[in-house]
Write a protein that binds this DNA or RNA. Structure first.
Lengths: 193, 193
DNA sequence: TTTAGTCATTAACCAAAGTTAATGAACCTT
DNA sequence: AAGGTTCATTAACTTTGGTTAATGACTAAA
């Protein structure tokens, strides 16, 4: 078994027959990216599910004016991919970029889908992955509706802890939904109090 | 079969053995609510999944200052419930209120969970429900990050069409994340142009 | 070591949105 | 018919955030 950490994670969600795991594992492809490399860009049609072995990524899209809007940061152990585009079977609208040298394993949508009809454990895993994605987005909606910028920033800092040093502040601003100038203002005001 | 529309919906997602459907249907309880009635309030611990036969609901929570923040409106044929609280198995943080006389069918979390181990079709249905919930939230995140208030309002109007007349404007403002005063201002400015 | 690029900060100005309050319309209820 | 409630609108004022631009720190590349 090449990736026992992933097996353990899945097995925590649902009892996973070894035969199923090995079939899945045989489809995994390992890839390394340097800082700044793209795992995926808008328009790409070959969609893959990735599991980050180590590293840090940002997911974003661009609007009509070319401005970037960061949806999410992902770190070691987390899933990564153009998830909603995979569900809808459309080309990627998302850019996924490595923020430091990173390593991950990938399985293509095409290789994964047959597992659903192979054994019900994959349905369960697919369900739990979808549920976790939903919970993350609902949490984010809550923060947008209820918290002001400083509260959102503090939550982000608590969440990312030591990784803060690897994330430029203007990218955090984008994630929080404001401009870098506005975030800098808010932070300097909060320091003075 | 009492609720063929629901059976058809499920069957569109996954082949559903009649035996499974009938077992599920036998757990459904019908309920009618008058305008203003609550299906669920914050703090409630008996969580149920509902399917709206007819009517209109709003889902919201309140912040520390008692202000309401509307998460969602739901109409005939849609699922309703404190979904994230069900996943997390915690008391409801959500209020669910009927905006007009409404009728729905309900199944308790407790009654539904055993179906997951009964037959894999329920895993598939659970997965697809989670995926749809995720897609809706991701769409909402996109709108918050990329669209201005007027664009968000117009999307909402296009989506709800004839139901607009049943939704007070200040509730739409809450759903869009702004105050009723701000929405009124934006709309009057857009009318003048 | 110079040079260019990225980034955070600050200022000045403008636009958008929150707050409070007053007004009037529509709709109940009695 | 009278009274109360809910709601949308508008005004005046304040606060927050966007935009542009200048500055200086830091870093990476040549």
């Amino acid at each position: 078994m090449k990736y026992p950490q992933i097996y353990e994670q899945f097995n925590l969600w649902v009892p996973l027959p070894m035969e199923e795991w090995l079939a899945f594992e045989s489809k995994l492809v390992e890839r390394s990216l340097s800082k700044g490399d793209y795992l995926l860009q808008a328009g790409d049609t070959t969609l893959e599910i990735g599991i980050i072995l180590n590293g840090l990524f940002r997911l974003y899209y661009t609007d009509n004016n070319g401005k970037e809007h960061i949806k999410s940061f992902r770190r070691s152990g987390e899933l990564i991919g153009a998830y909603s585009e995979m569900l809808l079977n459309i080309p990627s609208r998302t850019y996924i970029q490595a923020m430091e040298a990173s390593r991950l394993v990938l399985i293509s949508r095409h290789d994964f889908l047959p597992f659903y009809s192979q054994h019900s454990c994959w349905q369960t895993i697919g369900r739990i992955v979808a549920e976790e994605h939903f919970l993350a987005k609902e949490q984010r909606e809550f923060e947008f509706l209820q918290l002001d910028v400083l509260e959102r920033y503090n939550k982000f800092r608590d969440d990312f802890g030591p990784l803060m040093g690897k994330i430029p502040q203007h990218q955090i601003a984008s994630y929080l939904g404001i401009t870098p100038v506005a975030l800098s203002r808010v932070l300097s005001k909060s320091r003075k109090k």
